[in-house]
Amino acid sequence: MSEAPVAPPTGSADPAFADGIGLLVRPPEPRAGWRLLPARVAAMCAVELQKLRHDRTELYTRAVQPALWLLIFGQTFTRIHAIPTGGLPYLDFMAPGIIAQSAMFIAIFYGIQIIWERDAGVLNKLLVTPTPRSALVTGKAFAAGVKSLIQAVVVIVLAALLGVALTWNPLRLLGVATAVVLGSAFFSCLSMTIAGIVLSRDRLMGIGQAITMPLFFASNALYPVAVMPGWLQVVSRVNPLSYQVDALRGLLLGTPAHLGLDFAVLVLAAAAGITAASALLGRLAR
């Protein structure tokens, strides 16, 4: 028979003892709402990024396409001077657009993963936890942003090796990282929103393939807006990818840009995407 623990004498000032007794007689105070949401978002983001430890193949294979754009398309059009770029070598002009393109291509199929989680029963388990749906979506969106950021580093290093005159100012690079994450957050939420509507991997794959290239070509990634036909200029001005490319080009190359407008559009687009994806997330679990 074990002996009962001996309590310290009355009036003991031992803080460890006082804290232990306090936890026995009252539960710990729950986190306030404003502290809970960021913690849940960070946790979901960390869970998503843990998957990279087990399979990095996606990052390697997706680095091939932007490399081909820079090595073949960029260097060829730099030689023929077919597109007016305001005095910039075409490879320099195109490099920020390829960064945005590679980030978008990673994010736009993110909805396939959430449908797979639905089919595997993971999503239902997440939805019955106290974690708000907005935190689930936001965590996944910013995990897509971090993956895209890794891809952007690969493109930037390759562009520097090819002689693109990029800035290495830490503050500007921080702005580049922010633009990449915000743009990826929007496109991943767009994918999750479509997933909540079509509810099928095959349909989502078809829609994703149908909209990625139009989004890319209807932006200023490959050519200035001024050379587009009038109707395409209108499309470009409502395309968030155009604002992401404009911000990246201004930050990396020092070209004239509307950074305040660019980041405002990216923040609003990401917020709208998170709202829409959160609203439709429950349809996937039915």
Rank of each mutant, 00 (worst) to 15 (best):
S2A: 13
A7D: 14
P8T: 03
G11W: 03
D14V: 06
F17Q: 12
A18D: 14
R31T: 09
W34I: 11
L36I: 03
A43L: 13
C45D: 06
A46L: 11
Q50V: 03
R56Q: 11
Y60L: 14
R62F: 12
P66G: 03
T76K: 06
T76Y: 15
F77K: 09
T78I: 06
I80M: 10
I99R: 02
I99E: 04
S102H: 03
F109I: 00
I114R: 03
I115W: 08
N124I: 05
V128R: 11
T129Y: 02
P130S: 05
P132I: 01
G139D: 01
A143G: 15
V154E: 05
V155Q: 05
I156S: 14
V164T: 13
A165F: 03
L166G: 05
V176L: 01
A177C: 09
T178I: 14
V180C: 09
F187C: 00
L190N: 10
T193A: 14
I194S: 04
I197N: 05
L199M: 13
L199V: 10
S200T: 09
D202G: 12
G208S: 10
Q209D: 11
T212F: 09
M213Q: 04
L215D: 09
V225L: 15
W231M: 03
Q233I: 00
V234W: 13
V238P: 10
N239K: 03
P240L: 07
V245E: 06
D246K: 00
T255K: 08
T255L: 04
L261K: 08
D262Y: 07
L266C: 05
L266A: 04
L266K: 03
A270D: 08
I274M: 14
I274K: 02
I274R: 07
A277E: 08
L281F: 09
G282Y: 03
R283I: 04
A285H: 10
R286Y: 07
